[in-house]
Design a binder for these strands. Structure first.
Lengths: 386, 386
DNA sequence: TTGGTTGCCGAAACCGGTTTCGGAGCGAAC
DNA sequence: GTTCGCTCCGAAACCGGTTTCGGCAACCAA
């Protein structure tokens, strides 16, 4: 290849050789003929740097591929440009299929600001505070994402006392006068979803609709129950405490509560579950009682776990966009560490209905349903069917 | 309460008030009546500090709750005491239920050395190298865990060239002369598990055993296929290429491959899948062909995903201890960054068989099985059964 | 011309550690 | 009694940034 002699050989003094050492502030300053203090202030947007200089510094920095070392900055500023999340590894209902999506979102949200994400795990409630404490003390993060918020959440008190920024994935303080106080949060409105689930069932013609809640320790359980009650009221249906069950954390516990509802003298023909996992527990029970899901009894879940798609019949449920949640949380948390008021950083998203095959018009009245169940149980109790 | 006047009022000059400011090196040094350089060297185990002094420094540091700021150390040492992992968010078979366990293990392994774990995500193969590059350049981590290793893995080349420590979760370079070269890794021996799966089926009396592999881009796919071949050979069964399928990344792809095997003129009575997800895909196909899993056809999976326990019949599979994997990887990686030779840091664990209900003695010969399938297909093809 | 702002930048201190280097103190050897 | 070597520690430089502070020049008003 022949190079055109008229064109000057391009000087790649600004070239960015990836294998070479990184360029540091001094070098950038030398290159610009400025002092490193000026360059630093220009990069950080100080007002005592002229607009011209700032532009020039910024463009050269970009061309030379300058990236400040966050831990070098941190030593003076005290900020490490990182957010952290501590997940507890001791939960009965772990194996969260959305963790990857959520983390992907959070990482992306952080990356957009050139921040990073560090994670840690705690084995117990008590360990949780220790882990948070260590992270705070060693200044491993400038703020925290707190997933799975509880009604009365020790992490919130702890971090508030330490005056460390944090944001909730979910809300807290259910039933208190000012539940949100001065915390920031992002949440998906489970109550809206559950309310619409009840409307949907009542639209199908169901008159007795049950609800199976989750662990009352978590704030969302109460909100979803509220949604259920709102749905009943909107449909003009009476509240029957018999139809409200709680504490279904796992699939097995979901089965227990479903059984309790279906064994009622006047059982519900539709059941709304606070979680998919619990809803899937009911599948076993329905099989056991010879009930056809979607016909004899309608089941709705919430979460949109992948498995809900593959069970038979596929489960009607609500899907939440975990990735977006992570992304929003990261961004809002970073903005908070930059000085924005926590109470201005709140967002409520909506879950979206996945219409599938586990619900439909009731073909049995509650009475008929009860009869079918006892009949089937007796039939099965007596002989060994083969 | 009356204090005993003979006892001197205890001076809590060493007390550790959690809400107070953290103690820094200077303060610790002042307290000890030593220079901060001496204290620093004592804490870091330099040999020019007397044993007595070292003990004294260590114990006082502990009592005062001194913890060095890792980013302050990093500025001089270049080491941030952190390991990183980049997960790719664009995979078709994401929703890894074990991510949480794995991360828990890795975090724990890191914590044991007082290290932390940072994570990031990449949207594509290309993005992956960028993300790694950024992390390296900004020195966000001293080493990397590389999950889901590929036969020909760009990350390995990239990090090797940059001379950055890393460890593989899995092996690499299948089929090459020296596949492991000088990398360190931890892996679960899928080949051993799959070999024993074949032995198990042959022990049941199966003579025609199929295999459905996974994405050949990943190293483990080849190893598991090897395990299948070893199993055949150990059982004295011939290799029939017809019985070997690949490329089942998802449940649906698993279904496709299962269908291909079962529609053979001489179909296998037992099928070993490289992954549970693919194995679950076969459930649909068996239902479609009117086949009873565990009787008409035996299915084995690998991974031990939670869902495998709840399908009907429950899937016989191999469970891998993801948490332990994470923990081992973290520890070995840290040791590598401290100077241990990569080739001395390798470990192979075993998966453990979960005997469930999807396999057993064949009640049909391959011929009979084929007949049953065609018969059922024709029956279904003709009329609309209701 | 003078004095006072204002805009813009450089010198130097600073952050909290680590590492280099030199030297005091001491015992042993000559 | 030197001299040498060894043990152990302190002073100071250093890492790569940020921030304080002061000063020069230009501009403005009197």
């Amino acid at each position: 290849m022949i190079t055109n002699p008229r064109l000057p050989k391009r000087q790649y003094s600004l070239r960015r050789d990836p294998s070479s050492r990184r360029v540091k502030l001094d070098e950038l300053a030398d290159h610009l003929g400025l002092s490193k203090s000026t360059v630093s202030r220009a990069l950080n947007g100080y007002s005592d740097i002229s607009e011209t200089t700032r532009k020039r510094v910024e463009s050269t920095a970009r061309k030379m591929g300058y990236r400040p070392l966050s831990h070098a900055q941190a030593i003076r500023t005290g900020k490490v440009r990182a957010i952290a999340m501590v997940i507890n590894s001791g939960e009965p209902d772990r194996h969260n299929p959305f963790l990857q999506d959520f983390l992907a979102g959070a990482c992306e949200g952080a990356s957009a600001f050139d921040w990073t994400m560090t994670i840690s795990t705690a084995k117990s409630e008590k360990d949780m505070l220790n882990v948070l404490g260590r992270l705070v003390e060693e200044r491993k993060a400038d703020g925290f994402i707190l997933p799975r918020t509880e009604v009365d959440d020790a992490r919130i008190k702890y971090l508030s006392a330490l005056n460390v920024p944090f944001i909730l994935y979910g809300r807290t303080g259910y039933g208190q006068a000012d539940p949100y106080d001065d915390t920031s949060w992002f949440d998906i409105s489970g109550e809206t979803a559950i309310r619409s689930a009840v409307s949907r069932l009542s639209g199908f013609g169901h008159r007795r609709i049950g609800f199976v809640g989750s662990d009352p320790k978590f704030n969302y359980s109460h909100l979803r129950r509220d949604g259920y009650l709102q749905g009943l009221s909107a449909a003009g249906l009476p509240i029957d405490l018999e139809l409200i069950r709680e504490d279904a954390r796992t699939r097995d516990e979901g089965a227990v509560q479903a059984r309790a509802l279906l064994e009622l003298e006047n059982p519900p023909t539709g059941i709304v579950f606070a979680t998919d996992l619990a809803a899937l527990g009911s599948y076993t029970v329905c099989a056991e009682f010879g009930l056809q899901i979607g016909k004899d009894v309608s089941i709705l879940g919430y979460d949109g776990i992948p498995e809900s798609q593959y069970v038979s019949p596929s489960l009607t449920t609500f899907s939440v966009d975990s990735q977006r949640a992570g992304e929003r949380l990261a961004e809002m948390l970073i903005r908070q560490t930059r000085g924005e008021a926590p109470e201005s950083l709140r967002e409520l998203g909506e879950a979206v209905l996945l219409e599938r095959n586990s619900d439909g018009p009731p073909r049995l009245t509650p009475k008929e349903l009860a009869r079918k169940i006892t009949h089937f149980k007796n039939g099965n109790l007596g002989g060994d069917r083969s």
